[in-house]
């Protein structure tokens, strides 16, 4: 079998396993499955930014923009779920588009710190302004409810909400996968590997980096909306620097070169995270050790271990390990 058909097969098996999860596991693990699905969406959208060669600390806060948008629209105006989903994505994309004007003047370490400054300022504003609920955030977000031609589904039920999340996430993943195969994905890779060369053949690299940043933010916004409904509440602390760091760690441990790498890293570390719940306080340290070990021994992430099985564009190991942030000329 060709590698591609193998990876398609793996994807189908994974989706089937996800669909069957609520049948074999209880509510607790189904809710956990919802969280994993949201994290997978965050990671694969984060990877779009990484594809262009940048690491951002703002992605989690852009997820928060989506979450807050949905919470406010559904609580104050009673918008239905699909409308909040679209509004959350649009709002995150809009905020990202505005932020991209100052931020994309920077690269590498400067971009990382700039994205941190902008994101943290937004997050502190949420804590400060009463409209966003201050430090307590917004709670009591009603679950989505569908009533169509005599059929009514209450998504407040854990299993139903899990299927809703799964559907949305799979659609988003397919869309992202399709984008990466399309011409735009090739341009992003070109910018990551040879920024100047790409410009010399007429690729406006800043425009494409901006596009990547905004598209990634739209998907993060969707993840934020899903999160807001899943928890029924939104607080500013859920989008703090720690979560941005975890997002970065998860994608590095999985590997960012291939689509399944980040998904793999996310699922493995989320499950690991859950199994370490008995030792809550020691968790960050274990993460730190994993991160250091991966950087020293598998600098391309765990996806390298699976490359011979699943295949993918990993045949020629390249010189650069993690996408270079070009800090050597910073």
């Amino acid at each position: 079998m060709r590698p591609r058909s193998i990876s398609t097969g793996v994807a189908i098996v994974l989706i089937a396993a996800a669909v069957l999860l609520p049948l074999v596991a209880g509510d607790y693990f189904t809710a956990f499955g919802t969280e994993i699905a949201i994290t997978v969406l965050m990671l694969s959208s984060y990877r779009i930014i990484v594809l262009t060669g940048e690491w951002s600390f703002a992605h989690v806060v852009l997820q928060g923009v989506g979450a807050y948008t949905a919470a406010i629209l559904v609580k104050d105006l009673g918008w239905p779920f699909p409308a909040t989903l679209a509004a959350g994505a649009a709002m995150s994309a809009l905020v990202a588009a505005i932020l991209s004007y100052p931020l994309l003047r920077m690269k590498g370490f400067y971009f990382l710190m700039g994205s941190f400054a902008a994101a943290e300022a937004i997050r502190l504003l949420w804590r400060k302004i009463p409209f966003f609920g201050g430090t307590r955030g917004l709670s009591n977000i009603p679950a989505p409810y569908l009533e169509l031609g005599g059929v009514s589904i209450d998504f407040g039920h854990t299993t139903n909400y899990f299927y809703l999340t799964l559907t949305v996430v799979i659609c988003c993943l397919l869309l992202m996968w399709w984008m990466e195969q399309a011409r735009i994905g090739g341009i992003w890779r070109a910018i990551q590997q040879q920024d100047v060369l790409a410009q010399s053949i007429g690729i406006e690299s800043r425009t494409y980096r901006r596009l990547a940043f905004v598209i990634a933010a739209a998907f993060a916004g969707i993840a934020g909306v899903l999160l807001a409904y899943a928890f029924g509440s939104v607080t500013a602390n859920r989008f703090s620097l720690n979560f941005a760091l975890y997002l970065m760690i998860w994608s590095i441990v999985g590997g960012t070169r291939t689509f399944y790498g980040v998904v793999l890293g996310g699922v493995v570390l989320m499950v690991f995270d859950e199994s370490l719940r008995f030792a809550e306080e020691l968790r960050p340290g274990v993460y730190g050790l994993i991160l250091i070990a991966v950087m020293l021994f598998f600098p391309q992430g765990l996806e390298r271990l699976l490359a011979p099985i699943v295949g993918g564009p990993t045949k020629a190991p390249r010189r650069d390990v993690v996408p270079s942030t070009r800090s050597e000329n910073a």
Partner: peptide, 15 residues
Amino acid sequence: NPVGCLIVTIGVLLV
């Protein structure tokens, strides 16, 4: 690998 250095310092931070 300058990015690698930055990332391991985050690891050290957590440890």
